[in-house]
């Protein structure tokens, strides 16, 4: 096989490969090529059981960001969740963030209930109002206790 043909096929192969790699990372991996299209806020929850990094953050059913980190705050013994919210969405300081489940066996996500305040949350600040994971087991227990007490 002659040299130029080989070089052509190598070039073709590498470009096909890079195209596929690019597709995987950019479309499926959702890497934003342009940085800082999002900003960061955080919130504390008493329980975030089942919530994972990368989980969706929704407001009125529309995705507005993702969970970027879930960790534990050692002093307060609360779950600290960091959010990345799209730049064009502004949150007022009285929004309520709650951990919710999509479907029956579905994944956990964060739902943000819009607030009415005029004061907005600046990047890097905290969302104060939170609602933790719905724990079906404790709900059931509560229900049973209630009926016994009657």
């Amino acid at each position: 096989m002659n040299k130029r043909k080989i070089e052509f096929y190598v070039g073709l192969f590498v470009s096909i490969g890079i195209l596929c790699t690019g597709y995987l990372f950019i479309v499926l991996g959702e890497i934003s090529l342009v940085r800082d299209k999002q900003y960061q806020v955080y919130a504390f929850f008493t329980s975030v059981s089942g919530l994972k990094t990368g989980a969706k953050i929704e407001m009125v059913g529309v995705q507005i960001g993702t969970v970027s980190k879930v960790s534990i705050d050692k002093e307060r013994l609360l779950a600290k969740v960091e959010f990345r919210i799209d730049k064009n969405i502004e949150l007022s300081e009285d929004v309520i963030a709650s951990v919710k489940t999509s479907g029956i066996i579905g994944q956990k996500y964060i739902d943000i209930l819009p607030g009415g305040s005029d004061i907005m949350i600046e990047p890097g600040e905290e969302i104060f109002n939170t609602e933790s994971s719905l724990d079906i087991e404790s709900l059931v227990r509560k229900f049973i206790f209630n009926t016994e007490n009657k």
């Binding site: 192969f13 590498v14 096909i16 490969g17 890079i18 596929c20 790699t21 597709y23 995987l24």
Partner: peptide
Amino acid sequence: VISFPLLTALFDV
């Protein structure tokens, strides 16, 4: 090292 990842990406897609 050049070929394997590119071929893998192709395979995935």
